[in-house]
């Protein structure tokens, strides 16, 4: 199994723990990764304000990726959403595809013919590798750990093109947590959006959405909040720090990438999973896996 890795923007700059844990987990599971070069932003931020800009940026990346003759994998919900959407648009609208192709040829001398498949890390783990295979490789059962799972919006919605999991109450990440022996806690704010996207527009909403989830998690007590999306991760981690600083409220809910706990279960050391970069320390984990 081999994939071309589309790094995206945030991960290589701010979430090195996500990147290194994914790398090491994949290595352990026998998945090869080839870093994709010459990429640019996936276009996602512009999808809402300039459809054409979004599509051209996404198509540019897809054209670059097609050189690798591999499926693309990304760790980011936004990138995956953007690229899968663009793939769908281009495959269904041949006129649009021709237009975009002319643009790409004219400006960059690249071309889209066969658009590669785009996958999220969780797609690879759940669909390509499969729960059984992962289960077999688990060395350290994460018994006694209670995690809250947060999947994020853009990996499941709109279901018209992101048809991976139940679009309203997704459950596959819970399954992936549970095969590691840990408990995935049921909680009422589980499907609540992280609120990252309200930042810079309506900060009050962003903070409030964050607080609602954190309050509930603090009440029920969990060992960490498991995410698979850089935007959600940053919202929860940085957001908690911000609230601690500004309002002197500490929730101390460690935010952890799924690949990090998966790595622990597979027997990879916390250091190799970038745990030292988690800003809210998952104490229980670090004590158990010294």
């Amino acid at each position: 199994m081999k994939y071309a890795l589309f790094l995206g923007c945030v991960i290589p700059a701010k979430l090195l723990n996500y990147e290194i844990s994914t790398r090491n987990v994949f290595k352990e599971l026998g998945v090869e990764l080839e870093y994709m070069n010459d990429f640019i932003c996936c276009g996602f931020p512009f999808e809402s304000i300039s459809e054409e800009t979004w599509l051209r940026m996404a198509a540019y990346n897809l054209a670059i990726a097609s050189r690798y003759n591999l499926d693309i994998v990304s760790m980011c919900n936004g990138c995956v959403n953007s690229l899968i959407h663009a793939k769908k648009v281009l495959e269904e609208d041949s006129k649009k595809k021709e237009e975009i192709n002319n643009f790409l040829k004219e400006n960059f001398n690249i071309e889209l013919s066969n658009i590669p498949n785009v996958k999220h890390v969780i797609h690879v783990l759940y669909n390509d590798i499969g729960k059984e295979k992962i289960r077999e490789k688990v060395k350290n059962e994460l018994k006694d750990f209670r995690f809250a799972v947060h999947v994020g919006c853009h990996i499941v919605r709109p279901s018209t093109y992101m048809n991976f999991d139940n679009p309203i109450e997704p459950e596959k990440l819970d399954e992936l947590v549970e095969i590691l022996g840990a408990e995935s806690v049921r909680y009422t704010t589980k499907y609540l959006c992280c609120g990252n996207y309200a930042r810079g527009i309506n900060d009050k909403v962003s903070i409030e959405l964050l607080k609602r989830k954190m309050e509930e998690l603090k009440n029920i007590g969990v060992d960490g909040l498991i995410t698979i999306c850089p935007a959600c991760y940053l919202q929860y981690e940085m957001g908690q720090l911000e609230i601690r600083m500004k309002e002197k409220i500490s929730y101390d809910i460690p935010v952890i990438h799924y690949t990090q706990i998966l790595g622990l279960a597979l027997g990879i050391s916390p250091k190799e999973l970038g745990f030292d970069l988690n800003k809210i320390k998952p104490k229980k984990i670090l004590e158990k896996f010294k």
């Binding site: 923007c9 640019i40 931020p45 810079g200 935007a231």
Partner: peptide
């Protein structure tokens, strides 16, 4: 070419 600041 990229935006490193998803947060905020």
């Amino acid at each position: 070419g990229i935006s490193t600041g998803a947060y905020g």
